[in-house]
């Protein structure tokens, strides 16, 4: 596999070309606006939450990219799962994610969300976040610095602009049975109400 900056740049440009060819002008415009206005749910699960506030401060100033923190899942576009996640926390994370309105995206922050990190043999943390929720972007590191998080946001912007059918929230609808089975296996008797039932009887 070729590595280095030039082939990488080439791949980005190719992606740009393919977006332009498949989408109409209006779709491209809407995707651009979505990519430049990302509301992040102000919620932290693990120690990664320590690295999130500095990202909003004067030194790193992520508001440049259009990222703002909001206090309620109803208004949020992006959920950052910041670090290790115990089953008890995961229940709350899933509830928050299901309350968010589409389109919605998840960033997994830190090694713990990828493979358990330093908690790989802990009885009380999950090892693979994407078994339970569709993750759109992983930022690895323990802990990732704010620069890494900003890089993650920039990559996510590219992904949002691509507007592909592989986006997490679409997968959560189409492959809900898979995610639900994993959640039920972990939580046992104490499961959440089903995602579809949350919307039963509502004519949205």
């Amino acid at each position: 596999m070729d590595e280095g900056f030039i082939p990488y740049q080439q791949s980005l440009e190719d992606e740009e070309q393919s977006i332009k060819s498949t989408q109409s002008v209006i779709e491209q415009a809407i995707a651009w606006f979505r990519a430049h206005s990302m509301f992040v749910l102000a919620y932290g699960t693990g120690c990664g939450a320590i690295e999130m506030p500095p990202t909003f401060t004067s030194r790193y100033d992520i508001e440049r990219l259009g990222v703002v923190g909001v206090a309620t899942p109803r208004q949020a576009d992006i959920l950052i799962v910041s670090g290790y996640c115990s089953p008890k926390t995961l229940k709350r994370v899933i509830r928050s994610y299901e309350q968010m309105s589409e389109p919605k995206y998840i960033i997994g922050l830190g090694s713990c969300t990828i493979n358990g990190g330093m908690y790989w043999d802990s009885y009380n943390t999950i090892k693979k976040l994407d078994d339970f929720l569709p993750v759109d972007m992983y930022v690895n590191g323990c802990m990732p610095r704010p620069e890494a998080l900003i890089e993650g946001f920039v990559k996510l912007q590219e992904k949002i602009r691509a507007n592909s059918s592989e986006a997490g929230y679409i997968q959560y609808r189409t492959r809900y049975a898979h995610y639900r089975a994993n959640q039920e296996r972990l939580f046992g008797t104490q499961v959440q109400p089903r995602y579809e039932e949350n919307f039963a009887g509502m004519n949205l």
């Binding site: 809407i30 606006f33 979505r34 206005s37 576009d77 309350q99 309105s101 589409e102 949205l204």
Partner: peptide
Amino acid sequence: IKLFVKEES
């Protein structure tokens, strides 16, 4: 504009 094209929950 993003909020106008977003669904409400």
